[in-house]
Computed example of a mutant assay.
Amino acid sequence: MTKRHAVVVGAGIGGLTAAVALHRRDWHVTVCERAPEPPATGAGIGLAPNALRALDTIGVDAAHAAGRAVPATMGLRRADGRWLTRADTADLTARYGVPPIAVPRPALTGALASALPPEALRYGTAVTAVDGSSGNPIVRTAVGRDLPADLVVAADGIHSPLRRAHFPAHPGLHYIGETAWRAVVDAPHLRIAAMSETWGRGQRFGVTPLSDGRLYLYATAVVPAGTRSADPRAELRRRFGSWHDPIPALLDHIDRLSPTDVLQNDLHDLAAPLPRLHHGRIAWLGDAAHAMAPNLGQGGCQAIEDAVVLAHLLPAGDGGGGSDAVPAALAAYSAARRNRTDAVRVRGRRVGRLGAIRNPLAAAARDLAVRATPARLALRGMDDLFNGFRLPR
Rank of each mutant, 00 (worst) to 15 (best):
A149Y: 05
D156F: 04
G177A: 13
W181G: 08
A154H: 03
R182W: 11
I158W: 06
T179K: 06
A165R: 10
P168W: 15
Y175P: 02
L162C: 02
P161T: 13
W181A: 00
H166A: 01
G172T: 10
A155H: 02
R182I: 11
A180T: 06
V152Y: 07
P168D: 13
G177K: 01
P161N: 14
L151C: 06
H159R: 14
P148N: 15
R163L: 03
R182Q: 12
A183T: 06
G172D: 03
P148G: 14
F167P: 07
R182H: 13
P148K: 15
A180P: 04
A154S: 10
A165G: 12
P171G: 13
V152E: 08
H170K: 11
E178S: 07
A165V: 00
R164F: 10
A155C: 08
A154D: 05
A155K: 04
G157T: 10
P161I: 12
Y175Q: 10
R163I: 08
W181N: 07
A155S: 08
A180C: 14
L162H: 01
P168S: 15
L162K: 04
D150K: 01
A169R: 15
P171I: 13
A165I: 10
A149R: 06
S160H: 04
T179Q: 09
P148A: 15
A165Q: 12
